[in-house]
Design a protein around this nucleic acid. Structure first.
Lengths: 272, 272
DNA sequence: CGTTTGGTCTCATATGCTGAGAAACTATTT
DNA sequence: AAATAGTTTCTCAGCATATGAGACCAAACG
């Protein structure tokens, strides 16, 4: 789950530690006390305390009434700034909303970062069982419909690169377990035009996704519809896929991907 | 605008610097190169480089194709975790959406942190001039309707505390400039039941807000409707206020603030 | 109460960060 | 193409800076 590989040639201990603190608080469902933080991270009380105080000054953590620590809202601020660059999200929302009202199932918008899929947005139908995805979280490509959808339309070398970096972690008995199986699945996805995750990430959860291609026909994101297997049945897939394709087409239009004229976004500012 | 007071008894230089880097990247509209970061923050290029590499390893920053740096999506992840604790946001959304469709103006959901108001969520009407608020950002209480709305229903000592910490920065010629004026305004708000910001933060922008009170009748948040003064006219205020009150009542119900029985929300997966 | 557990604060020490500078790249210009 | 200017990457010695032992509180607990 956690990918805390502290290796790397560049090191700033203090930073690693600070992020470890944030990580810990982020993982925890409840606010934690100083002692818990210190012992979990094997930090000296005094050190942990200093970090927490500094983090608090920056509003990266905040204290509850009883003195425990939890993530601060400054992070929320930063998070929104970070995502702002992807104005994709804003533009896609109305289309996703329509998709949800058509299918009555949850829709996700994802992008590919490194070899993982990141959930950028989620729209849920009015009344429905809730999925436990958290916006901002990530999953490996091999077990998600969105991952497979993007993979299928990537150039060979990038596919190879990503597959090489995938560890094929198993989540259910149906999770794709080998590079070969994944390649076969990718091939299938290409022919079919949409990707399916049939309880490969979570028992009883079926998803279907299509990629969003930019002007150069490169996948920049993917949109999926997810729901309990008993509702998202095999025979419904083509119909849902259709809605998905329409949705993606709409986003594409909005983003100006279909018309070739993609204005070179000025990277000016400092650059001469 | 920026509140980077590096003072404080606890200090971890490395952390302050790291956050300064994130701050800088967050403020900038375009990705920045190493040299720009280094010179802006008066860091040695070597130092700045090390920080950026470490931040990149943590996915707090990421590099664009041309090697520049910008905020990374890990922040988005953290941000969502941070806000998750306030499940208020999720619950309020549908109500806000209704409010927006009723009023055809932008709605904001805010909470009070320290002596400032933080924008937790924003819903915009279908077609409308866009407001420039960014979710996650904050404003002082004295110049916002939401601030005044919450202030008005806080216990005296907290009001005093907040007013004491307010610097009464001026934004327009109508901005409230003194503690006395603010107290008078609070009184007015109490009588009226809703707060108004009449171009006090921004020329031409009028807002109206009501607080969301918890089971103990303490304000935990506020909801506002904002729009250009020519549309949000004085005579429309009572009607808008009415929609607001209904909206807040709805959220209150959903949160279980009105009925005492606040069910312990099962965090289960597909929980029935 | 006396005891335990959790939090705050000080200070001497050596660890880990810093930044000069050199090397390796990348654009830009002639 | 070679020269130049501008960036980025990397190394390392020196010392500023973070570290953690420990003392001191305060609250919770039995």
């Amino acid at each position: 789950m956690r990918d805390s590989l502290p290796q790397g040639t560049y090191k700033v201990q203090a930073l690693d530690r600070a992020f470890a603190v944030l990580d810990l608080l982020g993982e925890s469902e409840v606010p934690l006390g100083l002692a818990q933080v210190a012992s979990s991270l094997q930090l000296h009380k005094s050190t942990a305390h200093r970090f927490l105080m500094v983090l608090e000054r920056h509003r990266m953590v905040e204290r509850t009434a009883n003195g425990r620590f939890r993530l601060g809202l400054r992070l929320f601020d930063f998070g929104n700034r970070a995502i702002e660059q992807y104005d994709l999200r804003e533009r896609a929302q109305p289309h996703l909303r329509r998709l949800v009202s058509e299918t009555e199932e949850t829709a996700h918008l994802c992008i590919l970062e490194q070899a993982r899929v990141i959930y950028i947005d989620k729209i849920e139908p009015a009344r429905s069982v809730r999925m436990i995805t958290r916006i901002g979280s990530s999953n490996p490509v091999h077990c998600t419909s969105v991952g497979k959808a993007m993979l299928a339309f990537l150039p060979e070398d990038r596919i190879n690169d990503i597959i090489r970096r995938t560890r094929f972690e198993r989540f259910t008995h149906r999770t794709i377990g080998t590079a070969e199986a994944l390649r076969a699945e990718i091939e299938k996805t290409r022919r079919r035009g949409y990707a399916v995750d049939d309880e490969e990430l979570e028992e009883g959860l079926r998803c279907i996704a299509v990629p969003l291609l930019d002007a150069q026909r490169q996948p920049v994101a993917a949109v999926s519809v997810s729901g309990p297997s008993f509702r998202v049945t095999a025979q419904k897939l083509p119909s849902i896929a259709n809605h998905l394709l329409q949705c993606v087409r709409g986003i594409s239009m909005d983003m100006g991907f279909t018309a070739a004229a993609r204005t070179n976004r000025a990277a000016a500012a400092w650059s001469a």
